[in-house]
Design a protein around this nucleic acid. Structure first.
Length: 507
RNA sequence: GGCCCGUUCGUCUAGGGGUUAGGACGCAGGAUUUUCAUUCCUGUAACAGGGGUUCGAUUCCCCUACGGGCUACCA
């Protein structure tokens, strides 16, 4: 049977980077095995539903290249893929569980249960449970009897459906990442399956959908490990074969304290969301990796190596390579801290690996956004010189500002130290010398420059720093002759002349 | 608190009964680049603690400590 996995987020806000990694691992697993990757929106909590969150999820996945084979947008044989549109299905299965004696109606109100909790806390006792020990003293179809239950149902009383969890049973299952895991059923309580609003809880909806959608491997975050025995029980009650489970280690805050949170990321100045999100409630902008300048391939690569490794020394992977190399058998058990420095390094590596013309096209977009108009034909050359010098593509306009405009200022220290007005006529002669060049390739310029300095009876060091300063304003950057070549003969000559005038003014 | 899961350099990790415990990020130094970056080289730094088992344990077992997750009519 072919592998089928799903990513099943709740549209309660922007997709978190941890969620994105869960999606990634599912995607990689599916692709590795030639299976299907589905997206299912788990929107069964009306109270927490956030407008726009589903679109955000879809756009984030799409930006990273993790396109689902089936999902709410592109449909599929098991549509609908939004749980809110499937409530009749869950009700049917809840009823089936009641009829088979695995579940029951419960009429206790939330307030009553809350009161019970408060009383227990006052008495200094453990929070009370709704389970095999206590259910007969509460208001449910088991305790009340069929007749009373029917009466209440007929009168339209609010109810939930609870699973009748068996007493003192060991529930064991195999987790692909953690191995054999076992729980006592006494730890579980009679979990609500169907809420008073008629919608299912995660547990019911998840199990029913995974079964119906023929999911073979449930790959999700470690936060679900504790409720996995409940799901195992549910599969048993339905008499369904259960999928394989793999609980992924969490992504932790850089200091190791807890799951990676927006709070701590804000403090350290990096995003935790794939793309920008404007909170519809507060109107606040929460920044994303995309807008912070990350290449999606780099983010994906970084995330893949958080909790997984290929067992080789390779670190730089394309998405395609990840698909080939990925396996759940090499996923770690323990949580991994988020390290933004490493993420930046991955970004630089992916920048270097990209084709200059591709990068140039992306840079053009950035320039347009910033209102810089520029001859796009020159961009590949600029990108080639700049991409080894920046962590982010978006740093190029600033880092290489001298390619796009005359330098605004000149490095004062160097100017003072290296420039004297006597140099001016030398530069004028240099300009003339350059004018006679038949081509403006770096090698030709260098040759001409060397010959010129010989004629002038000077070492190249006498002019180089000043020449760089005249062209770029700063003493750092690509090799001078490369820079000149990209700038072009005309711009180079003009710029040297105009910078020289400004040097003298500054003196 | 209870239950579950975990613990190798600061971080991501490889490894696994006998290793100089390997790589990467970061940091530091050097070479190349008349600059910067890249590249290359070098250095830095780890098996949480205590008991077993064993000729030998970082590796297997137990305990402790620490960390994390869950403990809702949230997912």
């Amino acid at each position: 049977m072919s592998v089928r996995v799903r990513f099943a987020p709740s549209p309660t806000g922007p997709l978190h980077i941890g969620g994105l990694r869960t999606a990634l691992f599912n995607y990689l697993f599916a692709r590795h095995h030639g299976g299907q990757f589905l997206l299912r929106i788990e929107d069964t909590d009306q109270k927490r539903f956030v407008e726009g969150a589903e679109d955000y999820i879809a756009e984030s996945l799409s930006w990273c290249g993790l396109l689902p084979d089936e999902g709410p947008l592109n449909g599929g044989p098991h549509a609908p893929y939004r749980q809110s549109e499937r409530s009749a299905i869950y009700q049917r299965y809840a009823l089936q569980l009641i009829e088979s004696g695995h579940a029951y109606y419960a009429f206790d109100s939330e307030e009553e249960l809350e009161e019970r909790r408060v009383q227990a806390e006052k008495a200094g006792e453990q929070p009370p449970k709704y389970d095999a020990q206590t259910r007969m003293s509460l208001q449910n179809s088991l305790a009340l009897g069929a007749e009373e239950c029917k009466k209440r149902l007929d009168s339209g009383a609010e109810y939930v459906v609870r699973l009748a969890v068996p007493l003192s049973e060991i529930i064991e299952f195999e987790d692909i990442i953690r191995g054999q895991v076992s729980f006592s059923s006494d730890e579980l309580d009679d979990k609500v399956l169907l809420k008073a609003d008629g919608l299912p809880t995660y547990h019911l909806a998840n199990v029913v959908d995974d079964h119906l959608m023929q999911i073979t491997h449930v790959i999700r975050g470690e936060e679900w490990l504790s409720s996995c025995p409940l799901h195992v029980l549910l599969y048993r009650c339905f008499g369904w074969e259960r999928p394989a489970f793999a609980h992924l280690p969490l992504i932790l805050n850089p200091n190791g304290q807890g799951k990676l949170s927006k709070r701590s990321a804000d403090k350290l100045g990096f995003p935790v969301f794939p793309i920008n999100w404007t909170d519809p409630g507060s109107g606040d902008l929460w920044s994303g990796f995309r807008e912070s300048g990350f290449e999606p391939e780099a983010l994906v690569n970084f995330l893949a190596l958080l909790g997984w490794n290929p067992g080789t020394e390779q670190e730089i992977f394309s998405l395609h390579e990840l698909c080939q190399a990925f396996g759940l058998d090499r996923v770690h058990k323990s949580g991994a801290r988020f390290d933004i420095d490493k993420a930046r390094w991955f970004n630089q590596e992916h920048l270097k690996a990209q084709d200059d013309t591709v990068l140039a096209a992306k840079l053009m977009l950035i320039l347009e956004e910033r209102g810089i108009s520029f001859d796009s034909g020159k961009l590949p050359g600029i990108v080639r010189l700049l991409k080894e010098r920046v962590h982010f593509l978006a740093d190029m306009p600033e880092q290489g500002h001298y390619f796009f405009a005359e330098p605004k200022s000149f490095d004062e220290k160097t100017l003072k130290k290296k420039y004297k007005s006597e140099l001016r006529p030398v530069f004028e002669r240099l300009i003339q010398h350059l004018e006679s060049l038949s081509d403006f390739e770096p090698a030709s310029i260098e040759q001409a420059f060397t010959r010129f300095m010989e004629q002038e009876n000077q070492g190249p060091g006498a002019l180089m720093p000043v020449l760089r300063l005249a062209l770029a304003g700063t003493i750092q950057g690509p090799p001078v002759f490369e820079m000149m070549s990209v700038l072009g003969s005309e711009t180079t000559q003009k710029r040297i002349a105009s910078s020289l005038r400004r040097f003298d003014q500054a003196q």
